[in-house]
Simulated assay, not measured.
Amino acid sequence: MVNPEEDPADGGEHNTHGHPREVLHAKIEATRADIERQVHATRAQIDQVNERIEARTGRNLILAILIGVGLGAILLVSLIVIKDLFALVALIFVGFSTFELVTALKITPRKLDPVPNVIAALGIVTAAYFNDPVVMWSSLLGGIAFAVVWRLIAQMIEADGRTAPEIFRDVIAITLVQVYVPFMASFAVALTRRENGEWWALAFLIVVVSVDVGAYASGLSFGKHPMAPKISPKKTWEGFAGAVIAAQIAGILLALFMLEVPWWVGTILGALLVISATVGDLAESMIKRDIGIKDMSSWLPGHGGFLDRLDSMLPSAPLAFAIFVVFSPLSTLVAS
């Protein structure tokens, strides 16, 4: 009998080449295998590039970008959509940052207590919400006094024989923590409480981020001459040049299209903030080098800790507040 699926006249061609559906299936499988090979090859190339970047900068670039975008989205919502939410975001960031710094300092011979320092820090940021200089300074002094008294009482209870100079260094460290993290951050909260201050807060954050991105990209591409090798070996003068250019571009664009002030105000904003951001970055690097750690914590993969992200922003916040006070009246002149 003749198989109905075979045609005697075709000389068994289908036996040689297979059923059309089998041929189609084979082509699909071959295409899928080719796509998978390309995907694997591309992924391998991306991994190699990321490994080279991580070896050069010490950061996982992909994770850093994802987390940075997430944190940026939170800040945007808190500043633009729900203005009062920014104070809550600041409380969270400052609380974690203070805890990180106090915990890191405990590695050294200094003794600090996380609970009173975090409570004092949260109190300082909360006081800034009322936008009253007297309240802000009073909260700083009160917070330092609270954490110092707690430490002195704890020292008396422990009675471990530490000398007066050692205890005095504890007091200095407590003061440093409260001034460096919550008090500087409180100016950003106070800025958002001013009329149109949220736009200036957003502007200074954008400029600081531009400084970081410009320094990172330029340093990665052209960095050869270390800027402060004993403090931060991977920071270069080429990176700083890229930061200056990025800050100027961001400052001018923000001045013209968001802050509605003359373009030259943007150049001043960019010039001052690139200095404060760089100093903040180097200051935190110096603290970490003194302690003997790479990152304040590992809570933010690709970034380190919360303080590792705020280091450039903290000294920039008081400066941004001062720039707002001096130059924000120009917006009414431009508008008129």
Rank of each mutant, 00 (worst) to 15 (best):
L333F: 15
E195Y: 11
F183D: 11
R169K: 10
A164C: 03
A322S: 10
V39N: 05
D308N: 09
K235N: 05
M286N: 09
N60R: 11
I62W: 13
T42E: 04
E5L: 12
A73S: 13
G305Q: 01
S316M: 11
W199Y: 15
I35D: 06
I206A: 15
Y180V: 11
L253E: 07
G292E: 06
V94W: 11
S328C: 06
H225P: 09
H19D: 06
V213Y: 01
N131E: 10
K230E: 13
W200Q: 04
S218H: 14
G18K: 01
G223R: 14
L205K: 06
R37C: 00
L254N: 02
M296C: 08
E284W: 02
M156K: 10
I62D: 05
S218Y: 14
I107D: 07
G58F: 15
S186F: 09
V69L: 15
S331T: 11
L141F: 15
H25C: 00
R59N: 06
W150C: 01
G292C: 12
S138M: 11
L282T: 03
T98F: 03
Y180M: 13
G123F: 00
I35T: 08
G123I: 00
N3D: 15
S298D: 07
G280W: 09
L272H: 08
I92N: 08
Q248S: 10
A317G: 04
Q48R: 02
L141H: 03
P114A: 05
A247I: 05
A87Q: 05
W299E: 06
P109M: 12
P229D: 11
G123R: 01
I153G: 07
A277R: 02
L141I: 15
S232I: 00
M286K: 14
A128L: 04
E238F: 04
K235M: 10
A173H: 03
P4K: 02
G280V: 06
L66F: 01
S328W: 07
V171H: 01
V89E: 12
A159W: 00
A241Q: 08
E13R: 13
S298R: 07
A154Q: 05
L220G: 10
A147K: 10
S285I: 09
G143S: 02
G72E: 12
G270N: 04
F93V: 05
N196D: 12
P133V: 08
A44R: 07
T163Y: 13
I174F: 01
V209D: 01
W263Q: 03
S328Q: 14
G12D: 12
V261S: 14
P233K: 02
